[in-house]
Write a protein that binds this DNA or RNA. Structure first.
Lengths: 152, 152
DNA sequence: TTTGAAAAGGTCCGGAA
DNA sequence: TTCCGGACCTTTTCAAA
């Protein structure tokens, strides 16, 4: 789908605030409410707009301990990959899992309450998965930048 | 803030869909629209609910090439850290940057169009930052799991 | 694709339990 | 905290350009 400058501006605002009204957008962009409405609907239909979601505050919710786990598998046969990917996806603590190139196979973003909970996650969840080879963990000292906003 | 089971269910639905109406929630949870409304407002005020945002489809938007960059700084003096963090935050291609423990100092999530664009990002942006020591990149082969939904 | 106007539906109060 | 009812605002549809 081709996006013109107006579409890109709409996406800019929507990425920051899913609840901005068409009326507010129409005022910012000097278009009628209906014109905004049609453009947004078109971007929803084409899939450019994937989802409207709510972000929670990790710290307030008590999950401020963020860890990146580098995982190597023992075997790289298809069944090992399928098994690991299925099992790791089922873990609530794992928000992200990417199959990556390089020294290890997977990079995981893990969210837990504290070191105590992380230890428990490692011992009784992650390292019990089938075909797990080695893991290496990096603890987050500080979040320098963390956005979902794409510059289109 | 203390969250009861009802609050947690509301958060579960809101995290998946920021546009779910209070009416829909009230039907799912057998509460009045006003009761839902009050609970949501309270969670907004307390900061549990941080933001309502829109997610775009990276692939459709033409930014489907995802790379994790491990960065080591040359110096670890405060001014070097401040300088690097400020500069890296300004880069649109860098969606996430975490100061982490381990063999390297920072872990970056970088989003670009393709390898060509990544090469350009490395050569003319990332490696030109002050105090950059070494970098190591991992390319994403596949996205196994990628959610923002926290289990509360 | 755009517009204004009107119907349909949701948000957000006040007052009461 | 909960509920109901109503005022207000937003979304959605429509005919027209």
């Amino acid at each position: 789908m081709k996006l013109d400058e107006l579409d890109k501006k709409i996406l800019g605002y929507l990425q920051q605030d899913a609840k901005i009204t068409n009326k507010e957008l129409s005022a910012k962009l000097n278009l009628s409410v209906t014109a905004i409405y049609e453009r947004v609907k078109k971007m929803e239909r084409s899939g450019v707009i994937a989802q409207y979601i709510t972000l929670l505050n990790k710290d307030i919710v008590g999950l401020g301990f963020q860890v990146f786990c580098h995982v190597k598998l023992e075997k790289h046969a298809q069944n090992a990959i399928d098994s690991f990917e299925k099992e790791v996806t089922a873990l609530d603590e794992v928000l992200e899992c990417f199959h990556v190139s390089g020294d290890y196979d997977y990079l995981l973003k893990v969210l837990v309450r504290d070191m105590e909970h992380f230890r428990n996650f490692m011992v009784s969840k992650l390292t019990t998965l089938k075909y797990i080879g080695s893991t290496q963990s990096s603890f987050t000292i500080s979040e320098v930048k963390n956005t979902t906003t794409i510059t289109v």
